[in-house]
Computed example of a mutant assay.
Amino acid sequence: MANLFVTIDRTGRFALTQIFEKAYRNTAREVLEHLLEVVPDRIRTVLTNRAIGAPSAE
């Protein structure tokens, strides 16, 4: 099962998604580092949600 990381600008101007086959603590760090590279604005707050994935369609 793949892991989806989604980042959304709360003002609705920007969204970024990344899919990883396996997710580790380092994966989250990589997502945040990539976000810092591509977002033109200063990031002041990071909100997290470790959502439970939907059941598979099998």
Score class of each variant (00 low, 15 high):
2 A>T: 06
2 A>H: 10
3 N>F: 12
3 N>P: 02
4 L>T: 07
5 F>E: 00
5 F>A: 04
6 V>T: 11
7 T>M: 12
8 I>A: 15
8 I>V: 11
9 D>Y: 05
10 R>M: 11
10 R>I: 09
11 T>V: 07
11 T>L: 10
12 G>A: 07
12 G>Y: 02
12 G>V: 04
14 F>T: 01
14 F>C: 04
15 A>I: 04
16 L>T: 02
16 L>I: 02
17 T>Q: 14
18 Q>M: 07
19 I>R: 13
20 F>C: 07
21 E>A: 09
22 K>R: 11
23 A>K: 09
26 N>E: 14
27 T>P: 00
28 A>Q: 06
28 A>P: 00
28 A>L: 12
29 R>E: 08
30 E>Q: 12
30 E>W: 06
31 V>G: 04
31 V>A: 15
31 V>I: 06
32 L>V: 02
32 L>I: 04
34 H>N: 07
35 L>N: 00
35 L>P: 00
37 E>R: 12
38 V>Q: 13
39 V>Y: 05
40 P>G: 06
40 P>R: 08
40 P>N: 11
41 D>H: 13
41 D>K: 07
41 D>I: 01
42 R>K: 14
42 R>M: 07
42 R>P: 05
43 I>Q: 07
43 I>H: 14
44 R>F: 02
44 R>V: 04
46 V>A: 09
46 V>P: 03
46 V>L: 15
46 V>D: 08
46 V>Q: 11
47 L>P: 01
49 N>Q: 05
49 N>A: 10
49 N>T: 04
49 N>R: 05
50 R>K: 06
50 R>T: 03
50 R>D: 06
50 R>L: 03
51 A>E: 03
51 A>L: 03
52 I>L: 14
52 I>T: 11
52 I>Y: 15
52 I>K: 15
52 I>S: 14
53 G>F: 02
53 G>D: 10
54 A>T: 08
55 P>M: 02
56 S>V: 07
56 S>L: 09
57 A>R: 11
